[in-house]
Amino acid sequence: MAAGGDHGSPDSYRSPLASRYASPEMCFVFSDRYKFRTWRQLWLWLAEAEQTLGLPITDEQIQEMKSNLENIDFKMAAEEEKRLRHDVMAHVHTFGHCCPKAAGIIHLGATSCYVGDNTDLIILRNALDLLLPKLARVISRLADFAKERASLPTLGFTHFQPAQLTTVGKRCCLWIQDLCMDLQNLKRVRDDLRFRGVKGTTGTQASFLQLFEGDDHKVEQLDKMVTEKAGFKRAFIITGQTYTRKVDIEVLSVLASLGASVHKICTDIRLLANLKEMEEPFEKQQIGSSAMPYKRNPMRSERCCSLARHLMTLVMDPLQTASVQWFERTLDDSANRRICLAEAFLTADTILNTLQNISEGLVVYPKVIERRIRQELPFMATENIIMAMVKAGGSRQDCHEKIRVLSQQAASVVKQEGGDNDLIERIQVDAYFSPIHSQLDHLLDPSSFTGRASQQVQRFLEEEVYPLLKPYESVMKVKAELCL
């Protein structure tokens, strides 16, 4: 049975990233139509530049190519590739079939990587351009969430054990800070992308030097003109047959890092959902379990974690691919890159769409948070109580021993009897502590235990987050809708 299948058929496997999760716009960027249309555009740009620099290419040939950029006979191309065992030459023939007058000058002087690699770089750039505003929107939604809850005390956790208090907004800023680093890295790697350009079979530009009869300047002009037509500021000066596969490492490393950030955020949300302090959106008709109707599973956060793990592992592909590119190139890269580049971007696209949807509907339960604080705060307040007693004339050592005994009794009630923490009640009825009984409410005010959390939130948002989001103001209103 021949390899390949009808990918629109229910009898043929289709990647869930495309069929179930990723956005239509990201799927289109990695589609065959987008790819092969870009090949034709690159052939047109090459012909236009070659004509401008004096090669015998007519206006009629150029116009014929322009008129057929979208006229792609995919069936013919597939048949040609089956016959020739070469995808680029299959599309040269297919393009030439609908451009008979231009057929002889299509791909003039070029090698397969002229269309293959340059198209990949265009796709990487455009895919990054799709991700950047999506990530900015996630940051914006979380920034709104953090600002609104900047002063809401909550129990902090280290080692997932109760620690000092923080605020809900401050905790959210930990998430935002990681995503801001990801946004900066995505922008950097996007701006650092260079075009492969017009380089020939081993990167020496020998074929173009021959076409222009040894004119170095025209060869350099050709490279520059096509690079500018493709919208790049610069091209690699040095290439082998391909652009260095280190570029793929750079791009997928940034995406993998984004995956790590999203995994951490969504894990926190899942843990908070278990504590009943916070939940992701839950639709009115949504079913959490087929057997347990009360369940409210954090399905979206779980999906993000599941896909983020996949995204983090994909960076190993370009690392290994770059390491086995012998001399000017081997074909070890080809099949692998067809999979890992598309999957990385479709996965990143999915987790950003999902995280935006989550961040637009996060639900906080202040009463649950308050109750958990009441359970733990008495123990945390013991040092403040000791200091207040010393100020009232008591002995630190005597007070410490009193607190120690009462704390152990209260802990026994919590752990052995399943009761509430009654340390404060014990202190309130103990005559030894009568000098500070009137101060206990103040000493137990949760806001006095959150330090500068709310001020940190305000400063972080104003100095770091809002300036970073400013270039994306025009796209901030787009909502994230999930079908599944």
Rank of each mutant, 00 (worst) to 15 (best):
A388C: 11
P133R: 12
D332M: 07
L355A: 14
R426G: 12
E250I: 10
M76K: 07
L186F: 07
P56K: 03
G451R: 13
D117P: 05
R404Y: 11
S474P: 08
V189L: 07
V226I: 03
S23T: 11
K367W: 08
V168Y: 11
K415P: 07
F345C: 12
K470S: 11
V247E: 07
L307D: 03
V198A: 03
D6R: 10
K218Q: 06
T201G: 09
M26H: 09
K391N: 07
Y21V: 15
Q285W: 14
E283M: 14
V219A: 09
K218W: 13
P318W: 05
L423P: 13
M225N: 02
K147T: 04
S23L: 13
K82W: 10
R396D: 14
I176K: 09
L53A: 05
S31C: 03
G203M: 04
P298Y: 02
R452T: 09
R137L: 13
T321W: 01
V475Y: 00
D59V: 02
V219N: 01
L42V: 04
R309H: 09
M476C: 12
F157V: 01
M225Y: 15
R83Q: 08
I436M: 06
G8I: 01
S395G: 07
F433Q: 05
I424P: 12
C99L: 11
S9A: 12
M225T: 00
C98W: 09
I351W: 07
D32M: 06
Q241H: 00
I403S: 04
L443T: 05
E463P: 13
L255R: 02
L132D: 15
C173E: 03
L275E: 12
P10M: 11
S301T: 02
L314F: 04
C180F: 12
T321M: 04
L108C: 10
E220H: 00
M225C: 01
S290M: 06
K75L: 00
D191P: 10
V226T: 13
Y365L: 08
I424W: 11
Q161E: 04
I237W: 11
P318M: 07
M76R: 11
G54A: 06
V457H: 12
K147E: 01
K284A: 06
F282C: 07
Y294D: 08
A256K: 09
Q325G: 02
Y13S: 13
L444P: 04
L362C: 14
C180H: 00
P378H: 02
D420S: 11
G116R: 04
C98G: 07
Y34H: 09
S359L: 09
G361Y: 00
H91P: 10
A110K: 03
T154E: 03
E463G: 09
R40D: 12
I123D: 13
S301Y: 03
R452A: 08
H437Q: 01
L131V: 11
S23M: 12
G451E: 01
L128P: 08
Y114S: 01
T347G: 10
A335G: 06
Y294L: 10
L352A: 03
E81L: 02
S301H: 03
F28R: 05
N421T: 05
E25G: 13
Q408D: 11
P366M: 03
H263Y: 11
L443H: 00
Q375W: 05
T111E: 01
A335Q: 00
F460S: 04
G200P: 02
L152K: 07
P162V: 01
K479G: 11
E277F: 00
A335W: 07
D87K: 04
E80T: 13
P366C: 14
A453G: 11
D129G: 01
L174S: 07
L142S: 01
S67R: 13
R371W: 11
T204S: 04
Q286E: 07
D6T: 08
C173G: 03
S19E: 15
E383F: 03
T111Q: 09
E60R: 07
I72R: 07
A2I: 06
E360K: 11
Q456L: 07
S301A: 03
Q177I: 06
L135W: 05
A235H: 04
S31Q: 09
R303E: 12
M476S: 13
R374Y: 14
A77D: 08
G361S: 14
